Simulated assay, not measured.
Amino acid sequence: QEPAPSRPIPRSMAGPGLLAYILTSKFDDHVPLYRQHEIFERMGADIPDTTLVDWCGAAMRTLTPLIERIEADIMASDILHADDTPIRVLDRSAKSKGLGKGVKQGRIWTYVRDQRPWSGAAPPGTVYYFSPDRKGEHPRKHLKNSAGILQADAYTGFKALYETRADGSAQFREAACWAHLRRDFHDIWTGTKSEIAKEALDRIGQFYDIEREIKGLSADERHAVRQQKTKPKAEAFHAWAEAQLTRIPGKGDLAKAFRYGLSRWLSFTLFLNDGRVAIDNNAAERGMRPIGVGRRNWLFAGSDTGGETLARAMTIIETAKMNALDPQAYLADVLSRIHDHKINRLHELLPWNWTPASTVNCKAA
């Protein structure tokens, strides 16, 4: 008799299909575990909240070798988008400040590889990390083995990554985000109806018109078009912005927006010289959207360990979705196979390489 297949969680009654449903419901559909408990109870299955928590943590430990492969592959990319966002974390020490007794503010970081806009060869994916605070040591640790181009906001914690070394090199070149700058002018326009802010929006909008035309073209083609069409408009924007600073109050929000762009002009124009670089950091901001949706449902992570579980689950689920997979079907199949899969062939289960077991078995037959 053939030995029974390994269970996703040793000595547990939870099967791969059930675990995949629970993980997808919690981390993709954002249904808190206490609501899932109520749903299961209506179906006649009494699964305590504590058991669901244990299953989520154990399933993530089972998937850890695969998640680590995803992380290693994506973080080795020479172009990354980065962003972070706060989450509330239950603080059982009850010493937290500012968010109410027993609640502190943690952080979720994301690093995204998305070469689809320039038809790059590497598959898309996103890595999430949790940290208990927003100290700059966290992104430096995440990116310690990475190098190339980093597209992010102006957070000071990234500054050390751009600094010139003794040999004249730097770990990363900085690519700034035009959407971020545009948002500053948009807020000024909606609040004050400033004609100067409106003109800034119109000028930046012309850059985006060109970007829509070149989406999906090769890096070389994008570079050629940007040099021909966008570069003259960018140079005109720079000259116009400097002229506006001589006409407007120096301490206002409008002047602050202009100075933000002009002081980081090399970073804002890096995309003109490299067709692989995006005009903005929207890829990372899209990666943060599920966290924003989730916060309105689960309100807070139960602990730092819960924040780490959230980050690992989001890594595998969001990467699966970026590769056009149904995350529940993918997780169910992987959880059913991972313990019996040869470790030197684990790359076959990565989202961009995955073939369902049913398909593999049909080919073998």
Score class of each variant (00 low, 15 high):
Ile87Arg: 00
Glu137Trp: 10
Lys321Tyr: 09
Tyr155Thr: 15
Arg173Glu: 09
Ile214His: 02
Gly100Tyr: 05
Trp109Asn: 07
Leu217Thr: 13
Pro139Gly: 13
Ser93His: 11
Thr315Leu: 01
Gly148Pro: 02
Thr164Ile: 15
Lys321Asp: 05
Thr156Ser: 14
Gln328Trp: 05
Gln1Ile: 15
Thr50His: 09
His223Cys: 04
Asp83Ser: 13
Arg183Ile: 11
Leu335Ser: 01
Trp109Gln: 08
Met13Asp: 06
Thr192Arg: 12
Arg247Ile: 09
Arg247His: 07
Lys229Leu: 02
Lys97Asn: 11
Pro117Arg: 00
Glu213Trp: 03
Gly252Met: 02
Phe27Trp: 08
Ser119Pro: 04
His238Lys: 12
Ala94Met: 15
Trp109Thr: 12
Leu350Val: 11
Leu270Ile: 10
Ile67Glu: 00
Pro86Val: 10
Met13Thr: 14
Gly191Ser: 09
Ala82Asn: 08
Leu245Ser: 06
Arg7Asn: 07
Thr24His: 04
Arg11Ser: 14
Arg134His: 12
Arg183Glu: 03
Val53Tyr: 11
Leu299Tyr: 15
Asp84Tyr: 10
Met75Leu: 15
Phe258Thr: 07
Thr309Ile: 09
Tyr129Arg: 14
Gly125Arg: 12
Ala236Ile: 06
Cys56Val: 14
Ala239Ser: 11
Leu272Cys: 09
Gly287Trp: 06
Val127Trp: 07
Ile74Leu: 10
Pro249Asp: 07
